[in-house]
Design a binder for these strands. Structure first.
Lengths: 158, 158
DNA sequence: GTATAAATGTTTAGGCTTGAAATAAATAAC
DNA sequence: GTTATTTATTTCAAGCCTAAACATTTATAC
């Protein structure tokens, strides 16, 4: 029985709650803005962009389970997004030689070209939305936030 | 035509992107954990909790449009969540005297009692999940993140 | 080898979320 | 006062997302 840090005994509790609400708000604002721009400029969605981004960084392809771990979403969710991306010929599925259960997914040439356009715009939008913070402040904030994740890092890549 | 800060010309772009990815990751991890605990402990969801939280802080009730602005979600979304909360008698809808278009929503006694239990547990969970940061660090990080939102604050409450 | 467990993916039911269209009521223009 | 615009809300289709159940294949125990 590990002693639990309940609100009453822990004076940092309120500040932690405030920080969480701020993270939540920041996330929602930026996600809403990025979602709208992805829709208007490229006719795509944030989940689709996330999947393509992961695949772009792994040109040899990824298994479905790797994708879901990396993106922190459920297995079934990835199935649906990949299905829809495949309908647009942005990616393809192929068998994994040694394992007949698994499926490897990777971007097509069309998908690569399309994603590079999207990623370029995306980086500009993020920079614009975070224009209130200079490089050094961003770096510090990133480091501070990284301390949150002391538990449960299923797919620690960077 | 305001000059746009594109990646090439702005050296802070990469750091901003890194910060955004960190915010995204932190948000996903904490949301996933809170969602699971709300489901297991209280049989509820994060959106329901958010709606009840907003109503708890506004005992006299809120109009649907106020709710959707406050929570930064669409109007139609609030309709659905409120409908389901009403099925459980956690809240009720009532007419707004001067305006026959509008609807005011507020917690029932049952909803208040239930939310207080949930909120207490919720604060403990958040504090536990952010236990890697002490009060002062939390405060500083909150202030830094607050600088992100220089644009588009539709419902600036705190 | 055979039984058991674990891993990979899909399917399904239900809820969340959006943007767009529709309805109704209040406000503004004139 | 009538018309046009804006505001408040709901409905709808489509996509996102999860947890649970399922099927298949692989790995482990013995």
């Amino acid at each position: 029985m590990k002693p639990q840090s309940t609100p009453a005994q822990d004076p940092a509790s309120k500040e932690r709650l405030r920080l969480w609400l701020r993270v939540l708000k920041t996330n929602r604002l930026i996600e809403a803005e990025l979602r709208e721009r992805l829709r208007l400029e490229f006719g795509t969605t944030l989940p689709r962009f996330d999947v393509m981004s992961a695949l772009y960084r792994n040109p040899k392809g990824m298994k479905m389970s790797e994708l879901s771990r990396m993106l922190m979403v459920s297995n079934g969710n990835v199935t649906g997004i990949v299905d829809r991306l495949r309908e647009d010929s942005h990616l393809l599925r192929e068998a994994v030689p040694g394992d007949r259960r698994a499926v490897r997914v990777r971007l097509t040439a069309k998908g690569i070209i399309e994603f590079e356009k999207q990623a370029s715009a995306h980086e500009g939008w993020v920079s614009e939305l975070l224009s209130g913070l200079d490089a050094e402040t961003c770096h510090m904030t990133t480091e501070l936030l990284a301390q949150v994740l002391t538990l449960k890092e299923p797919y620690n890549e960077n």
